[in-house]
Write a protein that binds this DNA or RNA. Sequence first.
RNA 1: GGGAGUGUAGCUCAGGUGGUAGAGCAACGGCCUUUUAAGCCGUAGGUCUUGGGUUCGAGUCCCAACACUCUCACCA
Length: 479
Amino acid sequence: MQDTKFERQRQEKLSRIKELGIDPYGGKYDGTELAEDIKRRFKEDDESQRAKCAGRIVLLRHMGALIFMTLRDWSGTIQVGLSKKLLGERWPLAKLLELGDIIGAAGQLGKTKTGEITIWVDSLALLSKSLCQPPEKFHGLADIDLRYRHRFVDLWANPEVMELFKKRSAIISTIRQFLNVRGFLEVETPMMQRIAGGAAAKPFTTHHNSLDMDLFLRIAPELFLKRLLVGGMEKVFEINRNFRNEGLSRQHNPEFTMLELYQAYADYNVMMDLTEQVIRLLVEEYCQGNQVKFGDMTVDFGRPWRRAQYAELLKEYAGCDIDDIKSVRQKAGKLGIDEADMDDAVVINKVFEAVVQDNLVDPTFVIDYPVALCPLTKRKKDDPKYAERFELLMARMELANAYTELNDPAVQEENFRIQLRGQEESMATMDRDFITALKYGMPPAGGLGIGIDRLVMVLTGATSIRDVVLFPLLKPVPN
RNA sequence: GGGAGUGUAGCUCAGGUGGUAGAGCAACGGCCUUUUAAGCCGUAGGUCUUGGGUUCGAGUCCCAACACUCUCACCA
């Protein structure tokens, strides 16, 4: 931190506060109420009310022997009035306080002439001296880059940011409750893995020194959660970070939070119902109505969610028959996809992603994917070209992905051997230990993954994943 | 990685066609006991992201670098 003029000025004030014999960094400060709670419980015409509150000074109005401040805590704001008369020997401290300082204030609760609920402070404590200039008081911190880099300022300079992250926390808490009530067990599985399996993505690598062993940060917890199914945990879930070494975008942060859950003796239809239930519950609890605005889109959760087959959607949007690979490759060519070196299934999926996903705004379950794209999924009994997999798409994003889990070790081992051309990373990296687990017998099961960040985006209307991640990955500032 | 845009005071932003830097807030010095983004008087604050170039002269034009935003590609 460079020694700016402003910082020197504030250091000067800090010295003057110390000269008054006051610790500028305070200590334990008991018995406070949240600003919004105080305002809520205020009763008109009752002079016996007192209040105690702690917060940051975000507005400051000096009027000679009277000072008004607006304090912000994490619930909201409340006005405090400091008068020379009431404060007595603490008045010199009051005059030294400035924007950004954190103070504690207690006193009689009343209203001003203009009707603002105000704590008339008779007891004042400095809890932390701020040595940095706060951002502009009206516009807050607007520079997007600075907001992400200085989230510690963003959170109080822009109260809606605080609200969003409180909402994120509440959403996750609701999901946990939903699953706990249904008998799911929350577990934690390894973040550092010898084999990065369970998804198709480039992993981050790391190294364990004393074992002299390379490890990957996990791209998915899938193969470990399934081992728990083998172990007899019949309903498990994990809400935790995955790491994928891919590009950044409005929908992609290298580390992102995923809910993965597995339920023994269920299948993807059960997962579909569960997905719809939990998301409908969240919409009910955290959104106003069933129409949710997202950028220039409106996502309608109200109508029954469409459940459409992959092939059917390909026909509908791309106009080609999934079995007519020539026409699919032709379409791929038109879309500028370099399909020559790709396997059929990869080409089909490229076309699907290019044409279908960008058209699906309302929640849509895409069901029954071509088996080649689903090495961890059980095939449909009556149509083995397709696997019992669905993805939930909405707002032109993929939000969830689920399977009827493959529990046949022979088929799984065979799938691990197949490497698709045109897809750099395969979901099907051989994991012998996992095959061994399957050989002991894994119950038939349904599995589901929901991207929590994206879900929070849709529920809060935030169109960038960086707005729902507290500390998104940024390039370092040079120097 | 490709394309488009942006970068000016601590913060939020102005600065047609090149002529040497502006406002509001914040700061500093005053006045004020009912303000609400308080008000009034005064003061100070800038290597215009960085490095080159064109020019008598560059915040402005050109080139490059860096960062951010949007977008495309990889991916969830």
